[in-house]
Design a protein around this nucleic acid. Structure first.
Length: 423
RNA sequence: GGAGAGGUGCUAGAGCGGUUGAAUAGGACGGUCUCGAACACCGUUGUGGUCGCAAGGUCACCGUGGGUUCAAAUCCCACCCUCUCCGCCA
């Protein structure tokens, strides 16, 4: 959430920002409600102050007066409650301000390409997509997953089942080397934590699975559990930055997102992800964001996958982020919108969320002189297993249909090639 | 899952309807003493909101959320968490 004081004092900026981001948050109403709330609160506090003046047992006269005041007070309190509920709903939906370097666009696909780190390979054969390759080598079982769990679930099998753990190890090795503390987190979290991080577990178009009869939801990303890790705490400035890398399962309802552009394991209800996260002082946020991006690049350069870096435009930016960079891998088997085969597909995403989440979760840091401020929070994908697997198998396939295992994974898998087709 | 105990400030720990934002002890900070330190002694020390240029005023907060009452840390209800024992299990 944004600072309400900031919204009050920078109405024009906030309005413009909402417009740029395609947010429908009703700022005018928000400000009106906020003013009403403040007046009402003043009235209630006055009544309370009056009541507090009476010490000890009141006389009969006072009793009558007090009881009268009580009924006014409770009436006002009810009104306040109503206003605050409405206020909060809008307040939580106001997006973070936007980094000045972000492209302003109302087209979700209008994301500037910052660099193409590795160009797509020129293949002298027609590449197969990951579904065909998986079938050829018995690497993914969709039919039985559908039987057991429903559509958009999958079993990874044989080398791909191994590759999941190889990728986890590989990502952990690199992030730990870079100073990140490894965590294996819960896969469920309280809805309050989800709200705090800017996810709405209840909304109509929610991407989140709720556990009925509880106030828990399955996490869509370990960002939830790492971001919630220090909720309500005051961190010492000298301890910052705090860097974590977490392994978790991620669950997404993916409501209404069937399409030929997301076939196979590109968009699924459950996948494993290794997520990086930093708690930093404000002045180091951009540096930390860049650092996470660099680690993502280190990871995917090692995996020998062609990829590029894009910078989200305003229309594509999530509410908590002021800026987001994605790595997009070249996926030779992914259909392109122009009808040809091969397209870029998102494999990682890193966001600078400043104090948008820490304000809601009440995470502060204290400097040496004792001043407290909200920490800035930066998140980024190390590896999302399913997406990484698509990029690897589709790019590492050979003309004979075999798949070369990236060198960096060989030691974790004890093999160099996937080739079950001839057997 | 069952039975019992309990959740109070940085910590330990009192309070169990009104003058308690909270005794007391410890810690931390400042001071006296000392060549310096320890000891001893004196003092200060929660968070958030709001009004105010400021001094200061004011409201809220004793696990969370409701309720009773003129008044709740104190009474009632629900939930959460911790500990001990039993059960069950990876």
């Amino acid at each position: 959430m944004l600072d309400i004081k900031y919204i009050r004092e920078h109405k024009k900026e906030v309005l413009d920002n909402c417009k740029n981001r395609g947010s429908k948050a009703d700022i005018e109403l928000l400000i009106k409600l906020d003013a009403e709330r403040s007046i009402l609160l003043g009235k209630i506090e006055n009544i309370r102050a009056g009541k507090n003046l009476v010490k000890g047992k009141p006389s009969q006269d006072q009793l009558e007066k007090l009881s009268e005041e009580k009924s006014t007070e409770s009436k006002l309190e009810k009104e306040l409650d109503r206003i605050e509920t409405e206020l909060k709903e809008i307040w939580f939906s106001v997006p973070n301000i936007t980094h000045p370097d972000v492209r302003i666009s109302d087209d979700e696909d209008d994301n500037p390409v910052l660099e193409i780190v590795k160009e797509p390979l020129k293949l002298n054969f027609v590449p197969k997509d990951h579904l065909e390759l998986a079938k050829l080598h018995d690497l993914i079982d969709f039919d039985r997953a559908t039987k057991v769990s429903g559509s958009k679930f999958y079993y990874l099998k044989n080398e791909l089942a191994q590759m999941e753990f190889a990728l986890i190890q590989y990502a952990l090795d690199i992030t730990i080397k870079n100073g990140y503390t490894p965590l294996s987190t819960p896969d469920l979290a309280k809805n309050d934590i989800l709200y705090g991080l800017g996810f709405n577990p209840r909304g109509e178009s929610t991407q989140v699975y709720n556990i009925s009869g509880t106030d828990l939801s399955l996490i869509g990303t370990a960002e939830i559990t790492i971001g919630g890790y220090h909720a309500g705490e005051v961190l010492e400035e000298v301890e910052l930055p705090k860097k974590y890398v977490a392994v978790s399962h991620c669950f997404r309802t993916e409501a209404g997102s069937y399409s030929k552009f997301s076939k196979g394991i590109f968009r699924v209800h459950q996948f494993t992800k290794i997520e990086m996260f930093q708690y930093v002082v404000p002045e180091n946020a951009e540096k930390a964001h860049q650092e996470i991006l660099n680690i993502e690049k280190e990871i995917f350069s090692g995996l020998e996958v062609p990829y590029r870096v894009i910078d989200h435009c305003t229309a594509d930016l999530g509410a908590p982020a002021i800026r987001t960079f994605d790595l997009e891998a070249w996926m030779p088997g992914k259909p392109n919108k122009d009808g040809t085969m091969g397209d870029w597909g998102e494999i990682t995403s890193t966001s600078n969320c400043t104090d948008y989440q820490s304000r809601a979760l009440n995470i502060k840091y204290k400097n040496i002189s004792g001043d407290k401020n909200f920490v800035y929070m930066i998140n980024g994908t190390a590896i999302a297993i399913t997406r990484a697997i698509i990029a690897i198998v589709e790019n590492c396939q050979q003309s004979d249909g075999s798949i070369l295992i990236p060198k960096v994974l060989e030691k974790y898998m004890n093999k160099k090639i996937i080739d079950r087709s001839s057997k």
